[in-house]
Design a protein around this nucleic acid. Structure first.
Lengths: 208, 208
DNA sequence: TTTTTCAGTGTACACATGTACGCCATTTTA
DNA sequence: TAAAATGGCGTACATGTGTACACTGAAAAA
């Protein structure tokens, strides 16, 4: 017994989430969405909204979680591609750019709420990004036998660069995005090279 | 003759600008400010606002210009310090962190509107940041005899990293900020090292 | 079967917003 | 000095907002 009632409730909850996501665009931020708008878009009376969320904020935090999920799915996709061989950096950047093309509004949500007016939102977004960073950090340590701290600094810098490029990509066309990808790849190589060198010197010191 | 009238007008215009700036905080973004609030804070009747700006948007763009001005003043300060000797990277980062401490709300404005819902705002902020980047790019070319494109990529990456660190610094305390500064300095060194090496290889190719 | 629970509705209210309009007082121009 | 321009004010209005409240019908529990 699933509970026909709980099932229906879950369904309209999703409608609310999807309604909110659907209203996001380059000229519409989550904070500019009203409870009434979202409820209307979901085909609900305004007051029914409260049966699912106490607040627009609560809905928003749910969206951020949703975005984090999409982000992790992105990473899985990238890893699969990497296992098939090729430049790790290139594949990662290209995958990320594809992600942005297909999930522009979700990415915008993350970008905006990261510097938004709600501390809870900022924390939630930063948490998602830190997962992202830590996974990359692990990878660097394992694949390149890197010092933990050096790996973290590289991972953090790389994620920052990639997210910033993603932000730029949102406003550009296909052509811009390709050029942006090339630049980003080069910048990530700078970082990787600098970190590797530092790591090398660190190893020498350790062995003495 | 200054025109006692124009003089007074300029004064209340400033009051509006300052009122808007004054209302910005970590939990209050420009887009959440209402025309009435700003007018009230400036000691004006709501409708008088229109004597100075057609729109809140127009006020906002003025604020972005203001922020750009502050940013350039920051660079001047950094250059002065650098001329007195010391690590360029360290001095730049420390200066930037000081800037954030003293101008948190202006910096927040830039961060937020860069990913905001108004294309005009985004363009304005990106313009200011590109000035910032280009100046650094010039410096790198001149001081390190760097290839133009490599210098640009380094400058762009460095500015991205520093801005992102600035964003993180906004939410932390003094202690966090110091640690953040150290990390940022190291990351900038990674980038500088990687770029320098690439530039070196480029020179070899050119000389053949 | 009877009772309880609860997702969803419609009405209603107080409140904040942008801005049109007409007025005033003072500076500026003629 | 007379006329025009203009910064600032108060009133007024339509619109959108969050949410309190009482209600309904169907599912779940007793």
């Amino acid at each position: 017994m699933t509970g026909i009632r709980a099932q229906q409730k879950e369904k309209t909850r999703r409608q609310l989430i999807d309604a909110a996501l659907g209203q996001l665009s380059s000229e519409r931020s989550f904070s500019s969405l009203s409870l009434r708008e979202v409820a209307k878009e979901a085909g609900l009376a305004p007051t029914s909204f409260y049966r699912h969320f106490t607040d627009m904020d609560e809905l928003g935090l749910t969206l951020v979680d949703e975005a984090g999920l999409t982000l992790r799915q992105l990473m899985r996709q990238a890893r699969q591609r990497i296992e098939k061989g090729g430049s790790v950096i290139r594949i990662s950047v290209v995958t990320f750019m594809e992600f942005i093309e297909n999930n522009g509004n979700i990415f915008r949500l993350l970008l905006r709420e990261r510097s938004g007016t709600s501390a809870a939102f900022r924390a939630a977004v930063n948490r998602e990004i830190s997962y992202f960073t830590l996974e990359l950090c692990d990878y660097l340590q394992q694949a390149n036998q890197m010092d933990a701290e050096v790996a973290y600094m590289q991972a953090n810098a790389a994620v920052t660069i990639v997210f910033s490029a993603g932000s730029d990509a949102l406003d550009g066309d296909k052509k811009d995005r390709e050029q942006l990808a090339l630049r980003t790849i080069q910048q990530l190589r700078f970082i990787a090279r600098g970190a590797a060198e530092f790591n090398h010197r660190l190893n020498i010191v350790k062995n003495v």
